[in-house]
Design a protein around this nucleic acid. Structure first.
Lengths: 239, 239
DNA sequence: CCATTGACTTGAACGTGTTCAAGACGGGGG
DNA sequence: CCCCCGTCTTGAACACGTTCAAGTCAATGG
């Protein structure tokens, strides 16, 4: 086995041990010493590969996003109806995230911390974010929905923001099976569809333009990230 | 001096020392030992009065909300135009919060952590939240704005959610003077007003009802909290 | 075969939040 | 005046995230 392979194996050992223990006892109650033990490695070695305990979470995010992307693929292959596509993708996220609800909530707080490398707005999360946005792009592109041209370009990002809101609700949602969050989805998706359809009406064209240009000026429109979109497209293209 | 008075003095000493040091060096870089020293008190004593380092932040919240309420009072006395009132109250918040931007951002992450007593959705924050909602109620009540009846009842809470969104932006906003956040306010307030006015139009009456009933079913409508509203009303009633 | 180099690994030590057993204090009953 | 009891107050001790000087190891060059 090459040295590179061994290094990858050590990394994997550590992140796997961490996720196993997080799922078992939660984030806070898992110590770096326990992770190191479980991975048959010294404490300092974990820090050689991961800058901090928080950085280990990125591994969890990556895994979850891969699973969500696969689940979305199945959903999006089944229908061209916009509401069904969006709803399906959102429920798929809940399905994927469900097993981790208890401990995931413990560190989703990083979402609101701008100094954390785990903030979904941070540089470090660019890859995961672009992946999620590109899922939304496919939701829109494959749908039989006539959208205002300008809005269409901004819609994937808007839907990603919508998803962040749903996640925030989910984090606070203690109901069994995330009932409340699922209700929120079921009732906001048709609402979103209606508003998107109305975006071309005389009454709402103005506000729509305002929202789109605001989004642009805020700089939420990230760099093209062609390579990421390319990579994800390889997966989603088959849909 | 009675024992009760002495106790209050000790509490105040600790919270004042904490705020002073937070402002000076930031939250993370302030140690409990330093706070205890500054307050001329033993470390354990701080824990006798405050459950954790995080709990000391509540003192900061309380102080900021008092200041914001006072600033809002001045603003709301000046105009009955809805957009001006909402915009004024939001900018007033930014003014009040400005000196603390650097270190406040460090712990606003608790906002997204449901397990934290500092989450704006938590029981512990009920008082502060009710106060903020009641400011929004006065924004609406004193405005020359004809609103759909059902929407009117839900509007204060919706505007509070809007404020949470603005705060989230502010936390991430590194521009000088919170330029970006101020722009966001200046461009979303007229948008909000337009949509609220349109809430009575045939086209939007349906979606409006949907949003209002959704808010109710989600349980975001908190208990009446009459005593709080009463207390705040004593202040805001003079407007 | 050895020496050198640099990537990887180790675990003791440090700083910080938090806990807790023990003490100080003060006022009320004997 | 003393003792008792409950309310503060103390600071040493603990647990955990993190750092770092030192060590191991494999590959490379002589």
């Amino acid at each position: 086995m090459s040295a590179g392979g061994r290094v990858e194996q050590t990394r994997a050992q550590i992140v796997e041990a961490a996720l196993r223990l997080f799922a078992e006892r939660g984030y806070e109650r898992t110590t770096m010493r326990a992770i190191a033990d479980e991975a048959h490695v010294a404490v300092g070695n974990a820090y050689y590969y991961f800058g901090s305990k928080e950085h280990l979470i990125q591994g969890f995010y990556d895994q979850m996003q891969r699973q969500h992307m696969a689940a979305s693929e199945a959903v999006l292959a089944g229908t061209t109806n916009f509401a069904d596509r969006l709803s399906g993708v959102m429920h798929a996220w809940l399905d994927v995230a469900a097993p981790y609800h208890e401990f995931a909530a413990q560190f989703f707080k990083n979402a609101a911390d701008p100094s954390s490398p785990l903030s979904p707005f941070s540089e470090g999360s660019a890859a995961a974010r672009d992946g999620a946005v590109s899922v939304m792009r496919h939701v829109v592109d494959g749908a039989d929905l006539s959208v205002d041209r300008e809005l269409r370009a901004a819609l994937p990002e808007l839907l990603w923001l919508y998803q962040m809101g749903i996640v925030l609700c989910w984090v606070h949602d203690a109901s069994s099976g995330a009932r409340r969050t699922r209700m929120l989805i079921d009732r906001t998706v048709p609402l979103a569809e209606r508003i998107i359809r109305l975006s071309r009406s005389r009454l709402l064209r103005g506000p729509t333009r305002d929202v789109v240009s605001l989004l642009g000026d805020l700089g939420l429109r990230f760099a093209d990230a062609g390579h990421i979109v390319g990579r994800e497209a390889a997966i989603l293209g088959r849909i």
